[in-house]
Write a protein that binds this DNA or RNA. Structure first.
Lengths: 221, 221
DNA sequence: TAGATTGTTAATCGATTAACAATC
DNA sequence: TAGATTGTTAATCGATTAACAATC
């Protein structure tokens, strides 16, 4: 694989990483629709990116196209899956079995793609013992023991705001070094731990800001 | 308000807009903890931004600090609320009453901050008629009529992938021009319509990419 | 072959940062 | 006053784009 000018220790720019899942999603749709080939121009048109950006993004990881032809959908999808690391199983633990936790736990796509929630934890006595998506909900105190016996790749935090940092610390102490955070608070973690935030409130507020900007006549016109 | 070099028609850079909700969240925490003042250096330390970036972001909207003192928490929070447009009511409609839709519909924070879900729609006959968060779930066919009589500021799409674009078109036809999209597909909309995506799968895939990058030794070390 | 489209370079554009005069 | 910290400028850094030789 040609890693164009990329040295060990250098990370892929955030913009590129953000777009990879978008390519993955759309290529999956194309494959389902049995589309055979696609050009960077067509991809750009469909996804609101420039063709140059798409080619530039992909060239970070290799040369997957062919001059005068474009990209073979099946082949490119396969490569993107490889790049994203989708072809493999990931063990996850979920903390917080409220409405949001339940929604995450029952998201079919995860299991289908190899992202398996192996255990669910909560502190609410009413929820403990309930089954959810084939997983029993356990008391938070058992998290440590569970992680010792079953190392998890990813820890999902779907607790109320107040519990977020505490749960995060527990996960990190248990050896989890990738955190998917749905709790609306900024988590403080050691350097070796990754945090990917999924802040519903932030997203809504960005939309509202743009909405007001448009209404004030500072919009795209 | 000094709008530093910003002309009518110019939009605030995406980076600034992304950070505003983060400031809002943290300032709210500080206010709750009755912290009176904070400097850009302290804010940066807590939120993993540089002090210069925070000052630069805020100066897009005015001068809210004081040399030698920093920012008054209450005052700055108030300004950030003003900037984000939080001090006002927003009418929302929610389409899709599955697990994710229910989670969104029961998110307490929204109602508390004036984001009101006025109606919920679904196509599943088993769900129709059920109450959820004080809202009855109605058949999707009633969406048009509802929107005619009750214009909505924001439309929330929490349907399965296949229905996303159709529902989006219905919302746009009904006069909704801000869409909060939880459906894992790229929506095509007219120019005047805003879309803010909340793609769970994309977020998880970004985390997984970084996880593999780190494991491969291309991490931050 | 002629037409199309890639991968890559150089140019452009925009965002972040460092530095500091202003001033509380 | 002396110390601290802002708001803003200029310098730096990085990301996007336009253009095109290579080539299928």
């Amino acid at each position: 694989m040609t890693l164009r000018g990329r040295k060990k220790g250098e990370t892929v720019p955030q913009g590129v990483v953000s777009r990879l899942p978008v390519y993955f999603r759309y290529l999956t749709e194309l494959e389902t629709a049995r589309v055979e080939r696609i050009s960077s121009a067509q991809l750009g048109e469909a996804l609101d990116f420039t063709a140059a950006q798409i080619r530039s993004d992909l060239s970070y990881f290799g040369s997957f196209g062919q001059q005068g032809y474009g990209y073979n959908v099946e082949e490119l999808l396969d490569q993107v899956k490889q790049i994203l690391g989708i072809k493999q199983r990931y063990a996850m633990v979920l903390v917080g079995a409220g409405n949001l936790g339940k929604a995450i736990g029952s998201y079919e796509w995860f299991r289908a793609e190899g992202f398996e929630i192996e255990a669910i934890f909560d502190i609410n006595p009413h929820l403990i013992g309930n089954y959810h998506g084939g997983c029993v909900i356990r008391p938070l105190e058992e998290l440590q023991t569970h992680l010792q016996e079953n190392p998890a790749d990813i820890g999902i935090i779907a607790t109320p705001k107040a519990a977020g940092q505490t749960v995060c610390d527990l996960l990190v102490a248990g050896g989890v070094d990738s955190i998917w955070n749905f709790c609306p608070t900024h988590l403080t973690v050691p350097d070796h731990v990754l945090v990917e935030d999924m802040h519903l409130t932030d997203s809504l507020l960005r939309l509202v800001f743009r909405l007001n900007e448009r209404r004030a006549g500072n919009g795209s016109d």
